[in-house]
Design a protein around this nucleic acid. Structure first.
Length: 282
DNA sequence: AGGATATGAAAAG
DNA sequence: TTTTCCTATCCTC
């Protein structure tokens, strides 16, 4: 679930439903008890996303940094939070509030009748404003942030002999790309994933960046990653459903939508890289 | 029921 | 490069 677009949606949801309110923080699981105690009773002042990191700002110059990783999730309850966070089984609207935590809940935030339960995050820690700045300074360009500078990312890409398929996943260069956007943007650019970053031309990168911004902004609006053009889908009208949403991601062995050859899957630095060896030759 | 897999990344080796 | 974190889903049996 969580590539950059999801995290921006989460930050937006926190801004909408928690900002300006006093928040009760607790750690039902216990593992984040000290951190929750630091935040308990403070006012949530800001919610920001930077790549896959989310920062919640609290009164007293404290920031909560959350990274969901592969397994982490937020479960919400309350008006305005429908469809945000985990999709399939949100917390039911029950008679009693707050509801019993489901599973191991690292952090519970409650403001009025709004509730957010965090479970399974890779990172969950309280930072000072200084520490938060130090952290974001080391992060790469986020296509969803207005202050992003693609030229700065290009300097890093163009200086590296590493495969472009590896570099695109490096959060200290570009923040927010995950395995799906990586595979899909390379396919849309017809770029061979193993090509060294230093061989990437500036105008090619500018086009890829613009394409990526469009894809991720669509992801923020809809909550889904859809990278296919309507004419390339098996069902040409209506919203892209399921497998129709991607060209190569999660389509190993299936025919490429453009050339019909089997989509390949290979391991690249511990992640599955999906690509079409016939179409991606640039 | 049980196993493989997953949109991630830090730590260990 | 491998292990670990730790939760859920999607298969197969």
């Amino acid at each position: 679930m969580p590539e950059g677009h999801s995290v921006h949606r989460l930050a937006r949801a926190f801004s909408r439903c928690f900002a300006g309110k006093v928040v009760d923080a607790s750690s039902p699981q216990g593992r984040f008890g000290a951190g929750a105690a630091l935040l308990d009773g403070r006012v949530l002042l800001a919610a920001e996303a930077h790549g896959k990191q989310m920062f919640l700002g609290f009164s007293g110059d404290l920031w909560l940094r959350v990274h969901l990783g592969l397994y982490g999730m937020w479960r919400f309850q309350g008006s305005g939070l429908e469809g945000i966070g985990r999709r399939r089984h949100p917390l039911a609207e029950e008679a009693e509030f707050p509801p019993l935590p489901r599973g191991l809940v690292r952090l519970r935030l409650v403001a009025g009748r709004h509730l957010a339960d965090l479970s399974g995050p890779t990172a969950c820690e309280v930072l000072s404003t200084m520490e938060k700045h130090a952290f974001t300074r080391r992060m790469g360009e986020d296509p969803l942030r207005p202050d992003a500078d693609p030229a700065r990312a290009y300097v890093r890409l163009h200086a590296s002999r590493s495969a472009i398929g590896l570099l695109l996943m490096r959060q200290d260069i570009i923040a927010g790309i995950g395995n799906i956007y990586r595979a899909e943007m390379l396919f849309r650019a017809r770029l061979e994933p193993h090509r060294p970053g230093r061989e990437l031309a500036l105008d090619a990168w500018r086009a890829m960046w613009a394409d990526l911004v469009g894809l991720m902004e669509h992801g923020v609006r809809t909550g889904r990653i859809v990278t296919t053009e309507p004419q390339d889908r098996s069902r040409r009208s209506g919203p892209a459903q399921g497998e129709d949403a991607s060209y190569v991601a999660h389509r190993a062995g299936r025919p490429c939508r453009i050339c019909g050859n089997a989509v390949l899957a290979e391991a690249m630095a511990g992640r599955t890289l999906y690509w079409c060896a016939h179409c991606q030759v640039l």
